[in-house]
Amino acid sequence: MSSKAVQNMPAEDPARVAEFEARIARGESIEPKDWMPERYRRQLIRMMSQHAHSEVVGMLPEGNWITRAPSLRRKMSLLAKVQDEAGHGLYIYCGTETLGVDRQQLIDQLLEGTAKYSSIFNYPTLTWADIGAIGWFVDGAAIVNQTMLAHASYGPYARAMVRICKEENFHKRQGYEIMATLAAGTPAQHAMAQDAVNRWWWPSLMMFGPSDKDSPNSAELMRWGVKKKSNDELRQRFVNLTVAQAKAIDLVLPDPDLQYDEETENWKFGPIDWDEFWRVVKGDGPCNRERLAARRAAHDDGEWVRVAAAAYAAKQREEAAA
């Protein structure tokens, strides 16, 4: 956190902060009308809106393959999944609004390019196997993260996560099924699946965010019960879950250092390229500009729908008044 951000923060009444933290310690749920430190509110708006934006932008890499899905069954699944992502974005925007911020303002920030979203969506989907890898890895990682967030101290966020987690399992399983099918196919299909694994594995590990020692927000979010586990703990859990899944379908995770540690019962993994992570976060990933341009175009193309809906409602009101 920058010193400027600290200066901008209003001074809080220590007694109220203590009472607030005691509530968190007792495991109570914080609700929209409850008193909360301004910093808690701002951190939640930041985190929840980034999460909502990620769901919305997450539709783009997959949308790329809807018209080219290899069968009607796959196409129906992918359409339903992408529709779910839109729904998930809306659940979280709705939760964020309870903190006293306008949804329009959040969407403007996304369209203006001043808001962040998950870096994973700035990678391209080059082959059909990428759709499998996204479901398996990206949704798999999201489930690990969101299962934790379903216990977050802020009620509306936690409840949105419960709803999302119920739906997300289908996303992961459809992805894994795509990968299993390709991996059991022709040598060319197997190679396509392996190539997708090679490209998506490391960015998926980066999804959990910087290592604990480099994550300035983590300690505070954990103290306030928004996060119950650290980035590194969640990342480790994801790796542990995924190793056996890869082995079962004869695909190799691209990490020569991957090794089981009897003592900790964890799969140890090699170093993550954090330079790449920060490069993509700061806007220089393979698709950052393309994603924003596509999002803006979708918003602009939808203008007539919004205008028509408003005009229809106005006409109905007039007729009712007449």
């Binding site: 729904g87 809306l90 709705c94 409840r159 709803r163 809906a309 408003a310 409602a313 009101r317």
Partner: peptide, 19 residues
């Protein structure tokens, strides 16, 4: 369950169903 934005009740119901 949550909330939706809509111009009128009818549209709110449709949006709620979809979301």
């Amino acid at each position: 369950a949550g909330s939706v934005h809509a111009t009128n009740a009818e549209q709110a119901l449709q949006n709620a169903r979809d979301v």
